[in-house]
Design a protein around this nucleic acid. Structure first.
Lengths: 340, 340
DNA sequence: TTGAAAGCGCTAACAT
DNA sequence: ATGTTAGCGCTTTCAA
C-alpha cells in the first residue's frame, strides 16, 4: 500500500507538505497542491488512519455497547445512532454482550473516541471506573442515580402508568401484566407505572396477574403466546398489558386460537414502535416509544462532547405516547350492563 | 493513560520485557513476569491497540458492510457474524450504505483486517478494485460470476421454485408474486424460481400478478398490506408468494380486513426465518432462509483466511427449506369440486 | 534472560 | 511556502 512517502516522492515535495495539503492545514501554492493531489490520485493513496490516530490521539471511532447478545432488542436505537455517527464522520464499532467493565477496558485500549451504552446494567462501582478513564460516553436507557453522566432515557414509568390508566378508564380492573425480560430495567419501570396506576385507583395488586420471563428467548412472540396460553382462566383478566409489541402479537395469536375475541372479550396494549403493529388486524393499541429519537440524540450529544470538547452533562428524558388503535375497548361487563 | 513505559518503570525492567510478558513471546524468569504483571495490575494498564496495530500491521478489526441504510434487513446475518467474530477476538465495525468503492477506501485506510460484504451490489469494475487492494473479504449474498472470491450465498432461486411448485401441486394457478425490494438481487432470484416453476407447469406468466416495490419503506407490513389491498379482484389470485415474511403478514392483515379467509380462500407463502411466523394465526407457511448460518459461515471463512493466511477461495451455497404451516391449502375450486 | 534501538505512517512544532 | 525532525506507543531484531 502506498504511504505518504510515496506520494511525497512522486510529487517531488516533502511528506509534511503532503500532510498539509491532505488535511487542509497551513497553506501552499496552488501548484504544489495540484502536484500532490495528482500523485495521490495516481497512487490511489489514502491516509493510514491507524498512524494518524496514534499521532493525534483521536480515532474517530465510536463504540455502541449492548448489554446482551441481541442486536435486535433495540434495532431502532442502533440504527438511528449509527446513521448520525456515520454522517458525522465516525466509524462505529458494535460490541455485543458488553458490561461496564468491558467498556473500561475498551477505552483503555485506546481505539475508541467515545461510547454509547445501551441499556447497560447499572453498577455504581464499574460506572465510577468508567468515569475515571475520562472517556466520553452517553448512557442510553438503564437508569442511574448519578447526576454527572450523560443520559438519554425514556419515561417507561409514565408509559406504563398511562397505558394502565387508559385500561382502567375503560372499566378494566383485572389487568394482566406480562414482561418480556425481567432482567432489563425498562420492564421494571413499566411495571412500577402499572402498579402505581392500580394503586391510585384502589385496585388490589394480584400476584397471579404478573407474568415474567427470564428473557433468554429470541422468540418474543412465543413469550406472549405462552403467557396467555398458560394463564389460569380463573384469573378472569379482561385486559393485557405487555411490555413489548411482539409479545403482544404472540398473545393475540393465542387469543385467536382460544377463540377469545379481541377487543370484545379481551383488551390488549403493547409497547414499542414496531411498524407492524399498525398493520396487524386488529391493529394493536400500543405505547409508542421514541427509540429512534433516543439513538439520534445520544449520538449527537456524544459527538458534540467529543468535537467541542465541552463537558456539559446532558440528561434528557423522552416521553412515550399512547397510540390508540383497535385492541382496547370497554370492559365487557360494562358493555353488557351486568354490574350491580 | 498509562503506557508501556510507565509499566516498565514501575516494574524496573525495559519496555521490551513488558511487551514480551504481555504477548507471551520470548521467555523470562517467573520473577520478572510477576513484577511486570503486578505493575500492569496496579496501573490498570492495557496495551494501546492503535500503537500495536501500527507496528504489526494488523488491527483485529473486521468490517461488516451493508449496502443499504437498513440494519434490520438482514439482522440474523449480522448478529451471527458478529457473535462469531467477537468470540474470535475481533472487533467489528458496521458500515451502513456502503458500496464496493467505499470498501476499497476503507481497506486502504488500513483500519480493517477484513470485510464481510452483505448483499452488496454487484459491479465488476469496483470488485476488481477491491481485489487489487489484496484485502481479505467474503461476499454474503449478492451473486457474482467471478470464481475467485469468497462467497456464501443462498439458493433463493431454489426457494422460489420450491414454494411455487408447492402451490401448484395444491391446484393453484393464479399465484400473485409480491417482492419487497426490486433493487435487491435476492428478490430477482426468487422471481426467477417462481417463473421457472410456472413455465415448467405450462402456466402462462401474467404481468398483473407481479407486484414490485422500490424498497424505500422500512414498513414491510405496509407493502404487503397494499399489495393485496390494491389488487384488482379480477385477477382472481388464489395464492400469494411473498419474498418476505413481514410482507406476508401485512397481506394476511389485509385479507382479514377484506374478509378473505386464509387459507380457505387464499393461500399464502412467505420467505424468511422470522420467529413470529410460527406464532401468528394462522401460522405462516414460509420458506426458511438460513441467514444465521450464512453469517456464521462467512465470518468463519474470513477469520480462517486472516488467521491462517490461506488464500483458498471458498464458495458455498446454502439451501432454503419449505416450512409447512397453516396458510396453504388446496385450491378452492378443487375443494368444492366445481371443476369441469 | 534482558536491554537498546529501529521503525511502523503519520502530524505538528520549529526552522528556513 | 516548504522542509526537517521529533515522537505518538508499540513490537521485534540484534547484541549483550
Amino acid at each position: 500500500m502506498a504511504t505518504i512517502k510515496d506520494v511525497a516522492a512522486k510529487a517531488g515535495v516533502s511528506i509534511a507538505t503532503v500532510s498539509r495539503v491532505l488535511n487542509r492545514t497551513g497553506s501552499c501554492t496552488t501548484e504544489t497542491k495540484e502536484k500532490v493531489l495528482q500523485a495521490v490520485e495516481e497512487l490511489g493513496y489514502r491516509i493510514n488512519l491507524t498512524a494518524k490516530s496514534l499521532k493525534t490521539g483521536q480515532t474517530s471511532v465510536i463504540g455502541i455497547a449492548l448489554s446482551g447478545p441481541y442486536l435486535l432488542e433495540t434495532p431502532m436505537i442502533i440504527r438511528s445512532a449509527l446513521i448520525v455517527l456515520q454522517r458525522q464522520g465516525f466509524a462505529v464499532e458494535v460490541i455485543l454482550d458488553a458490561s461496564m467493565d468491558t467498556c473500561v477496558t475498551l477505552m483503555k485500549e485506546g481505539r475508541l473516541d467515545g461510547l454509547l451504552l445501551i441499556d447497560m446494567q447499572r453498577d455504581e462501582a464499574s460506572l465510577k471506573r468508567l468515569i475515571k478513564t475520562e472517556c466520553r460516553f452517553v448512557l442510553l436507557g438503564g437508569d442511574t442515580d448519578r447526576e454527572d453522566v450523560n443520559l438519554v432515557q425514556i419515561d417507561f414509568f409514565g408509559g406504563g402508568y398511562a397505558a394502565t390508566k387508559h385500561l382502567i378508564s375503560r372499566g378494566h380492573r383485572e389487568i394482566l401484566f406480562a414482561e418480556d425480560n425481567t432482567q432489563l430495567p425498562y420492564t421494571q419501570e413499566i411495571k412500577r407505572g402499572y402498579l402505581f396506576a392500580l394503586d391510585e385507583n384502589g385496585i388490589p395488586y394480584s400476584e397471579a396477574l404478573l407474568k415474567g420471563d427470564s428473557g433468554d428467548s429470541l422468540n418474543k412472540e412465543s413469550i406472549g403466546y405462552n403467557s396467555l396460553n398458560r394463564l389460569d382462566i380463573k384469573t378472569n383478566a379482561s385486559a393485557l398489558l405487555m411490555t413489548n409489541d411482539r409479545i403482544a402479537q404472540g398473545a393475540l395469536s393465542a387469543a385467536r386460537e382460544m377463540r377469545i375475541k379481541v377487543p370484545a372479550e379481551l383488551s390488549v396494549i403493547g409497547f414499542g414502535d414496531h411498524s407492524q403493529s399498525d398493520f396487524s388486524r386488529p391493529s394493536l393499541t400500543s405505547v409508542k416509544v421514541p427509540y429512534a429519537q433516543q439513538g439520534e440524540l445520544g449520538a449527537e450529544i456524544l459527538v458534540n462532547n467529543i468535537r467541542r470538547g465541552d463537558s456539559i452533562v446532558k440528561r434528557v428524558t423522552l416521553q412515550t405516547q399512547l397510540a390508540l388503535r383497535h385492541t382496547v375497548t370497554l370492559h365487557p361487563r360494562k358493555v353488557h350492563g351486568d354490574r350491580p
